[in-house]
Simulated scan of single mutants.
Amino acid sequence: MSPTDASTDTGAGQVPLRGGGAEDTLDLRLPEELFPLIREDELTLVPQPADDDGHLLDTPAGWGPATTPLGHFQLVPVRIERDLGLVSRWMNDPAVAEFWELAGPESVTAGHLRAQLDGDGRSVPCLGVLGGTPMSYFEIYRADLDPLARHYPARPHDTGMHLLIGGVADRGRGVGSTLLRAVADLALDNRPRCARVIAEPDLRNTPSVSAFLSAGFRFCAEIDLPDKRAALMVRDRALRNLL
């Protein structure tokens, strides 16, 4: 199950080819070069070349800090031995659990994290550290290599994100929008072959959808995913200075 975004502001919250534009994303044809074999029960993905540094996501650990109106922000890749307790506690917050569906003992969160950490690097779980304090959780992933790509017209190197805000005190005051914009811009700055940042919050989660809009994403379509009806949100490189 792909994680769903908890509200970026009330509970929690994932790049055209160079020179690409922001054309309508309602055409649901899949790029043939990515998916030559699709079976009913699974999506078989063709192995993709790594990015210039040998990693599918250009190593989010090296993206560096971002200066935001709230202070310095940085993505720090999760280490289970250090971060499991914190992330599990956030997942058990009822406002988060409603959308992420990872409440329970630490083993539930550990399994979710290990599936990413033991994979090929197409999804990287990170802590969002603001002013030196871990206060949010991000998943940065290759949307074009994810099962999500079956449900929208994916382009090579599309970057997806999921977000949750950990602390109640950081919710409902625009923090989510600030972080979403910062991380989307980090992705665009550090992934030159990525032209779009993609997100798919649950349509029921109106604060999350609103936060993405405030962060410079545009609403493109409603899409039916296996576990939710989602709003397809896109932040385009070509429009980043306009939205």
Score class of each variant (00 low, 15 high):
residue 100 W to T: 15
residue 85 G to T: 15
residue 149 A to T: 05
residue 56 L to P: 02
residue 89 R to S: 15
residue 224 D to N: 15
residue 155 R to V: 00
residue 68 T to M: 11
residue 82 R to S: 13
residue 6 A to Y: 07
residue 39 R to L: 13
residue 183 V to S: 03
residue 164 L to P: 04
residue 50 A to R: 14
residue 25 T to H: 09
residue 150 R to P: 00
residue 233 M to F: 05
residue 30 L to F: 08
residue 195 A to T: 01
residue 55 H to F: 13
residue 68 T to H: 12
residue 53 D to P: 09
residue 187 A to E: 06
residue 240 R to E: 14
residue 138 F to T: 10
residue 101 E to S: 12
residue 54 G to N: 12
residue 90 W to D: 07
residue 234 V to K: 07
residue 121 G to M: 01
residue 54 G to D: 10
residue 182 A to Q: 06
residue 174 G to A: 03
residue 41 D to V: 02
residue 34 L to Y: 03
residue 225 L to G: 11
residue 27 D to G: 07
residue 183 V to E: 06
residue 158 D to M: 04
residue 15 V to R: 14
residue 134 P to V: 08
residue 45 L to F: 06
residue 125 P to G: 01
residue 234 V to N: 10
residue 58 D to I: 02
residue 123 S to D: 11
residue 114 R to A: 14
residue 132 G to E: 08
residue 63 W to K: 14
residue 236 D to F: 15
residue 190 N to W: 03
residue 191 R to S: 00
residue 153 P to R: 00
residue 202 D to Q: 04
residue 143 A to S: 15
residue 5 D to H: 13
residue 66 A to R: 15
residue 59 T to V: 13
residue 56 L to G: 01
residue 138 F to D: 08
residue 123 S to W: 00
residue 240 R to V: 14
residue 33 E to T: 09
residue 83 D to L: 12
residue 77 P to Y: 07
residue 166 G to E: 03
residue 167 G to S: 08
residue 190 N to C: 04
residue 200 E to Y: 02
residue 237 R to P: 10
residue 23 E to D: 13
residue 83 D to I: 11
residue 212 F to A: 09
residue 10 T to P: 08
residue 135 M to S: 14
residue 218 R to L: 14
residue 225 L to D: 08
residue 80 I to K: 12
residue 152 Y to A: 00
residue 9 D to G: 15
residue 142 R to P: 03
residue 59 T to M: 12
residue 137 Y to S: 06
residue 51 D to H: 08
residue 139 E to A: 05
residue 55 H to I: 04
residue 127 L to M: 03
residue 75 L to G: 05
